[in-house]
Design a protein around this nucleic acid. Structure first.
Length: 605
DNA sequence: TTGCAGTCAA
């Protein structure tokens, strides 16, 4: 980096005594003048002029003026840390304030290493840190992920008696939280006497970082019960984000209303966050309305909207929006192309997908990532174009991963192509997939082709390696609250009522011709036991609960953490007819809109 | 004369 030379540097070698001798008798007046000039300063150019004037007015050894100068130079948005560093190096006897200023300046410009080095220098020179020093240092630790050091500093904070300072406590919470240590973050939180909005915010962020969305909502609820806080923008954005992950549409809507009532205008980030919430909570209509009314749209807003339309199966609309984005002169990146390709993928637009894939490389000179290849391979597999798919794998600049093979395995299953399935399976096994679902899929394929030995072999891999299917979780919103269900769940206070509902549903389903499909149940148990496990599947419990606790004729929205299995997919189709409800299920990959016995995914997912 | 959290996708 280019170092800005200090003005009239040779003159700085004047000794302190020289300066004191020539010092103006009315120095207090000059100090005031100098500080007021610094306050008005708006650019480095002006600041350098002031530096020159300070020299003329013999203020370069006035510690008050120099400290103010340093703070302006290091902390202003237009400031210059290199210039500040030179000024700092000329201070004979820097104290806590000067060190704090420099550490803060470095932390502000994301140079956390230098911030920490300066802290070490401070300690070596015997200058005591104060309660202002620690927040910056802890911020540096948080950003560098240095929890061990952070913990040491926590000890130092205790020794020096700053552990009661609210800012230090919040910074400690944030440090632990950012380092993924929720437990210690909570421990600090519990010890805070007078919690501030930032304390709550740090607690939410700590949980959000680990994807503990459910806990985020609970914390927000507790914060509201304490009552002394007005929810502010940043914490509401975290709340909206938690709603997005949990599919809590009503709560998300309330947050949107709250934001509109309490802020004069919403910025692009907040609006994009809300946009994502509406999309992921299944309300594409609300998302479209919000998007059309956004005051400003950036690459990310378009990107979110395009992949949103893709997830909901509106491929053509997504591509139209992409053209609009290009017309607006917004340069696409690899992320937005991922949305565009997944739009083709979810809607089966093979030709369009291949054309756009070429465009990425040629027109925009973007190097496709493995995810882009994954989209195209899925698209080809779905269209049973297996030769093209294998050719593309050959051409890929990177080795295919399990995700790529898995999508082809799924395609082989759909087209009942055992030869392709076996070929893909060999590759998956070679990569040592630890996904139980892969082996179930393989085993089912072998079983279908009556290759019993191979079918058993695939299953025994699961047992030998101790793999298990991810614990299925279903979330459903009713009565403005989110309810969570796991398989065989009896943790809810009115679980008996839900189980009773399941019996009723089952009876009607049988009448309509539903037969449980146990082929994707992994457990090594007999058929009856498998049926029993399917019966109280988390999604079925959530459906029963929603049917009981939401008004008739309203839509039901469910969020899943794993891909939907075939049995629940068929089950939900039947339920949509029998109870005349529109049911939206968000699984790991996409949305399924069930209505009148059919699903928007057209049974490919 | 100084401080904490601070946001949107795969």
């Amino acid at each position: 980096m280019i170092r800005v030379p200090i003005l009239h540097q040779p003159q700085l070698s004047l000794s302190r005594e020289d300066c004191l001798q020539i010092s103006h008798p009315n120095s207090k007046w000059k100090e005031k003048e100098c500080v007021s000039l610094l306050k008005k300063c708006k650019a480095m150019k002006e600041l350098k002029k002031i530096h020159g004037q300070m020299l003329k007015l013999e203020l370069l050894y006035d510690s008050f003026c120099v400290s103010n100068f340093l703070a302006t130079c290091a902390l202003s948005s237009w400031g210059d840390m290199d210039y500040a560093s030179i000024v700092f190096s000329h201070i004979d006897d820097p104290g806590t304030f000067e060190f704090n200023t420099m550490i803060r300046g470095h932390a502000k410009s994301f140079d956390f290493d230098r911030a920490l080095k300066l802290f070490v220098e401070m300690l070596e020179r015997g200058i005591s840190p104060d309660n202002f020093t620690y927040p910056f240092i802890l911020k540096a630790c948080a950003n560098l992920g240095l929890m061990k050091l952070g913990r040491k500093i926590h000890g130092q904070v205790f020794k020096l008696g700053f552990h009661d300072d609210l800012f230090v406590q919040n910074s400690l919470m944030n440090m632990y939280g950012r380092c993924g240590n929720v437990k210690d973050s909570c421990a600090v939180f519990m010890g805070i006497q007078q919690k501030s909005a930032a304390s709550w915010s740090a607690l939410v962020t700590a949980h959000a970082n680990l994807g503990m969305w459910w806990e985020c909502l609970e914390i927000f609820g507790e914060m509201m019960i304490e009552g002394s806080f007005k929810a502010e923008e940043s914490i509401l954005v975290s709340l909206v984000s938690a709603c997005t992950h949990l599919g809590a549409l009503h709560l998300g809507k309330s947050a949107h209303g709250y934001l509109l009532r309490n802020l004069s205008s919403l910025n692009v980030i907040v609006e994009t966050c809300l946009l994502d919430m509406y999309i992921k909570c299944g309300s594409i209509e609300n998302a479209v309305t919000l998007f059309n009314n956004m005051s400003a749209k950036n690459l990310l807003s378009y990107s979110v909207m395009i992949s949103g339309l893709a997830m909901h199966g509106s491929g053509h609309e997504a591509l139209m929006l992409f053209s609009e984005m290009l017309e607006q002169g917004i340069e696409p990146d690899d992320g937005v192309y991922l949305g565009v390709l997944s739009a083709c993928r979810h809607s089966g637009l093979v030709e369009e997908g291949l054309r756009l894939f070429e465009k990425i490389k040629l027109e925009h000179r973007i190097q496709p990532t493995i995810q882009h290849y994954g989209c195209i391979l899925d698209l080809l597999g779905r269209a049973a174009k297996f030769d093209e798919a294998f050719n593309l794998i050959e051409e890929m600049p990177m080795a295919p991963n399990v995700v790529v093979w898995r999508s082809l395995l799924s395609a082989a299953r759909i087209h009942f192509n055992l030869e392709i399935g076996e070929r893909v399976a060999r590759n998956l096994m070679q990569l040592g997939s630890d996904n139980a679902g892969d082996y179930v899929m393989m085993s089912n394929m072998y079983a279908r082709a009556q290759k019993w030995t191979d079918a058993a072999a695939a299953r025994s891999i699961v047992a030998d390696r101790g793999l298990d299917q991810a614990a299925g979780l279903s979330l459903v919103e009713a009565r403005k609250k989110v309810y969570r269900f796991v398989s065989q769940d009896k943790s809810h206070c009115n679980w008996e009522e839900v189980y009773e509902m399941i019996h009723q549903m089952e009876w009607q389903l049988k009448f309509e011709g539903y037969v449980p499909d146990t082929s994707e149940v992994l457990h090594n148990v007999d058929e009856e036991e498998k049926k029993q496990r399917l019966k109280y599947h988390s999604q079925k419990l959530a459906l029963a609960f929603a049917l009981l606790h939401t008004p008739e004729n309203t839509d039901i929205r469910i969020v899943r953490n794993v891909r939907m299995c075939r049995d629940t997919h068929a089950y939900t189709k039947f339920i949509s007819v029998i109870y005349n409800r529109k049911i939206t299920v968000r699984d790991r990959n996409r949305f399924h809109h069930f209505n009148d016995g059919t699903c928007s995914c057209k049974d490919y997912w």
